[in-house]
Design a protein around this nucleic acid. Structure first.
Lengths: 192, 192
DNA sequence: CGATTTTTTGAATCATATCAACGTACGTGG
DNA sequence: CCACGTACGTTGATATGATTCAAAAAATCG
């Protein structure tokens, strides 16, 4: 249990055995079946989830009912509505499983307590958030400067594993396009 | 010197006098005149800048030469090409002054050394990055779900001070639209 | 004041969305 | 293991919102 989770932390912070055992009691695990919600808009996000196995998506819904995927979560990724988690406000995102999944959960209380008592945990959070910020900034910039074809090409290059496991209309949603438009872009690419 | 900077840190981490004096020697200051670059695409970002006074913008340039503003920096904000700063890779963003400005600079060496020796500094970084990440995520989501009129209305509500001080075409760029389109949207809003 | 920058307006064009229909793949219960 | 229903992907026709290009009006600066 938690193998991938601790391996990830070790890589990022050089965690010792002792520190690992200090952290372990704060963790819980959870299994999710395909289509099952981890978090629903309006509920408070009670935990940050680390994906040990499976695939999830995080998305918001507009007034017209359209889903907009903001993030995928595969093995080795963290996923949560961070704003809701940190503030206790109702979540504005939904998270559900695209495949059966196994998660490691860090609750708010565990998060606070570890920040207080495990210095390496603050380092971990800093590194993780920094990485997430940089990735989001790259994506934001790409959305603004690049056309859909370029963004799709970049996506399949950066996340070939996601392309294999996730339906195309979800990738379209992530890229900010309709399924029809992405389908046409793919056709254009193929005819080259 | 550095009044706003230290006040900001105190608010976020409860810095003591002693800690403040521990940090001070790591800082340098810099003045920028309107239109002057702090960072140019291709150069390495040598420092994170905290804006004590004035206004800056950070933007990328597409193949067609179009500027896309990713962030403004007014008093109390940090600004940098964080990826370039952390990795030493050439910057992909430009930063220049919209108004004459006074900055507090944290160089890479200062950053690393303070992370090692001043625990509150890591807390500061964590808090700052978390805030930046949440803001960016809100913006990203809004770009995807909301139309330009809604985003513009949200912008003038959230950043009335920016609207006053920054030319409209830069706000258009920040919102991901052309100056012409934003002008027309404003006209539509006025006719209500 | 003249020069430059900024904003506005108009007309043509383009990329993407929308709506609708169809074919295909998938997995689920009988 | 087959058949049916749902989810998924593709294609076509049309609509729409934003961009582009050009030019003029307005504001700002030295």
């Amino acid at each position: 249990m938690y193998e991938l989770f601790f391996e990830d932390i070790r890589k990022k912070t050089g965690l010792t055995e002792a520190e690992q055992e200090q952290i372990r009691p704060f963790l819980t695990s959870k299994k999710l079946r395909k289509r099952q919600y981890l978090l629903q808009e309006g509920d408070v996000c009670k935990a940050i989830a680390f994906v040990e196995k499976g695939a999830l998506r995080e998305y918001s819904i507009d007034e017209a009912g359209g889903e907009h995927i903001v993030q995928f979560g595969l093995e080795g990724w963290y996923i949560s509505d961070l704003y809701s988690f940190l503030t206790g406000e109702p979540a504005t995102y939904n998270i559900d499983a695209i495949e059966d999944a196994e998660l490691v959960l860090i609750t708010r209380e565990a998060y606070e307590e570890m920040l207080r008592t495990v210095p390496k945990f603050e380092t971990l959070i800093r590194i993780n958030i920094t990485g997430a910020y940089l990735a989001l900034q790259r994506r934001m910039t790409s959305t603004v400067k690049d056309n859909l074809e370029t963004r799709y090409q970049a996506f399949i290059k950066t996340y070939p594993n996601i392309v294999q496991r996730v339906p195309q209309h979800m990738i379209a949603s992530y890229l900010g396009a309709t399924p029809e438009t992405l389908s046409r872009v793919r056709k254009r690419i193929a005819n080259k």
